[in-house]
Design a protein around this nucleic acid. Sequence first.
DNA 1: TTTCGATGTTGACACTGTTACCATAACCTC
DNA 2: GAGGTTATGGTAACAGTGTCAACATCGAAA
Lengths: 192, 192
Amino acid sequence: MVTVSTSKAYHHGDLRAALVQAGLKALEVRDIGDISLRQIAREVGVSPTAVYRHFPDKNALLSALGQAGIEQMADWQQAAADAATDEDAFAATGRAYVRWALANPALFRLVFGQCSAVSDSVFGQNNAASMLRDFAGKRAGSEAGTQRLMIQAWAVVHGLAMLMLDGQLPKDDALIDRVIDTRTLFRGQGNC
Amino acid sequence: MVTVSTSKAYHHGDLRAALVQAGLKALEVRDIGDISLRQIAREVGVSPTAVYRHFPDKNALLSALGQAGIEQMADWQQAAADAATDEDAFAATGRAYVRWALANPALFRLVFGQCSAVSDSVFGQNNAASMLRDFAGKRAGSEAGTQRLMIQAWAVVHGLAMLMLDGQLPKDDALIDRVIDTRTLFRGQGNC
DNA sequence: TTTCGATGTTGACACTGTTACCATAACCTC
DNA sequence: GAGGTTATGGTAACAGTGTCAACATCGAAA
């Protein structure tokens, strides 16, 4: 949906969507903390305070960006899982997690950061979570074991993504494959 | 390296140390991004621009805070390792990593965050790193296996800390013990 | 047509990091 | 001691930010 072509747009067509789109584009260049409400408004061609007709404050705008990021990331992971064999889907999802983070650093930080962009846990909403739960359930036996395995797996991929994003580890693509490796990582009751 | 603080009290005394101390105290309350150079200067009782006699810019001040955080965290981990049995020291160090993060959220984020507080990898400087390397070396056989195990372990604890800090996982102390568990986590060549 | 609510603008306020310039106080050389 | 140098701190200002109050404009309902 392209904006209105004619001039007389005192009322911008769909300003909210335009702001979100401009915000996502800004997140591709600047990193979070360096994006300003005024800059986004300027990009769209609207006064800074116009934003407040659609979002109560800057945090709410960032929250909308984060929501878009969640959906985009879930699609990415789903695609990775679909493209993998059954026994590799677990690890494939994890690798996709890290690779999406590296491909969308600022958005990743916005989704999981403390900026209260996403108040609730992402794992509850994401349907990739239930997929993971199934995988973990097959691997682990007990209910407690399933939950533990899920959290361990989440922690590994999240930690690896964060350490790479923050420059603590090299953003080496092969390193992802080496680390996200179920043959060495989890001592579940798979094969031993 | 100790700074040139020869205890010669000029106008303020040792302003640099006072700024660092005030900054660390501010990090206990506010989280990073909400701490301002001016606020810290106000706390110490000097003008905002006096800070620039000791730090080239705000980032450098934050960098100094991060450096203090690194040392504090290393001590914490060292103490945890010393207090544990030999075969538990590996996991104990990991649990201390997460618990220190929960006890010092803003400082932890400053140490590992992308704010370029710590330009180089923390693992290179920290002598807890070499300790971890020893542990990993005993567990894994090959050199590649040692490096992989180290990164996996680091990713798990870092990810768990981040997810808890960001509210994605409950800050449950017992959950830390459950997740940082070498009996279920790593399939190294320990006991199997 | 008149009214009204939704949307966008203008101006302002307090705050931020940063710079250029000025002021003071301690130290060094005579 | 006197005088100069340098390290340290202060003032004023600038551009930029998020946010609020008051005003303007448009689309649609009455």
